[in-house]
């Protein structure tokens, strides 16, 4: 519990609220928790992420974004997401045992995107998106869209210190919408993690 309190806004650790989150997740298969980290941890994380060096990663018919070189608070936040304490918390909300499979920090600026490539099958699991981007306008693109058979099931608009987790299984897949020139020099900074879970 101490480890959770070090990172997570303690309001979310209230047992009554946890039960509500569990019910909401089981009903909708997705939940967004705003102001998720404590203000001080979020500030440190945002500062380190902004300073981190980036390299463009591009296979033009699949994706184009920057990968971020991890340092300082970003590394320790990654360790926290892989911790037993966080897995237990997520397992409680999801109602099934989960284990962290991958964590990736991505940065999307003007002209960057990910695509639903024909040959790529989205791995099923519980996906977690944690955003660092402040004052983002969805009209610029850059949001995460979850689609199935051409229909949009959910959209995650970049919002600083918001954690969204959702179940992706079957034909559901996600992509990051192209960021257009109206975003100027702003970037969306997002952590995408996948947790393995057993589905029926």
């Amino acid at each position: 519990m101490d480890e959770l309190k070090t990172w997570i806004n303690t309001d979310y650790l209230n047992p009554a609220l946890l039960r509500q989150m569990k019910e909401a997740y089981q009903r909708q298969q997705s939940v967004q928790l705003r102001a998720f980290l404590t203000a001080s941890q979020f500030k440190r994380l945002q500062r380190d992420a902004m300073r981190a060096s980036r390299t463009v990663q591009s296979v033009p018919d699949m994706f184009c974004h920057d990968a971020i070189k991890l340092s300082g608070t970003m590394l320790s936040f990654g360790r926290f997401l892989r911790s037993k304490a966080f897995a237990q918390l997520l397992s409680f909300i999801a109602g099934r045992k989960v284990a962290c499979a991958s964590i990736e920090w991505q940065s999307f600026g003007q002209g960057q995107y990910t695509l639903l490539h024909d040959t790529l099958r989205q791995e099923r699991g519980i996906y977690l998106f944690f955003d660092l981007s402040a004052r983002w306008d969805e009209a610029w693109g850059g949001y995460t869209s979850v689609v199935k058979d051409g229909d949009e099931l959910a959209r995650i608009s970049p919002r600083a210190n918001a954690l969204t987790f959702l179940t992706l299984k079957g034909k559901a897949r996600h992509f990051t919408k192209y960021v257009d020139h109206k975003a100027g020099r702003r970037r969306r900074l997002v952590l995408v993690a996948r947790f393995k879970a057993r589905f029926k």
């Binding site: 033009p60 018919d61 995107y113 257009d180 109206k182």
Partner: peptide, 8 residues
């Protein structure tokens, strides 16, 4: 303005 067609 802002419209595009990505590589395919």
């Amino acid at each position: 303005s802002g419209d595009y067609l990505l590589p395919h």
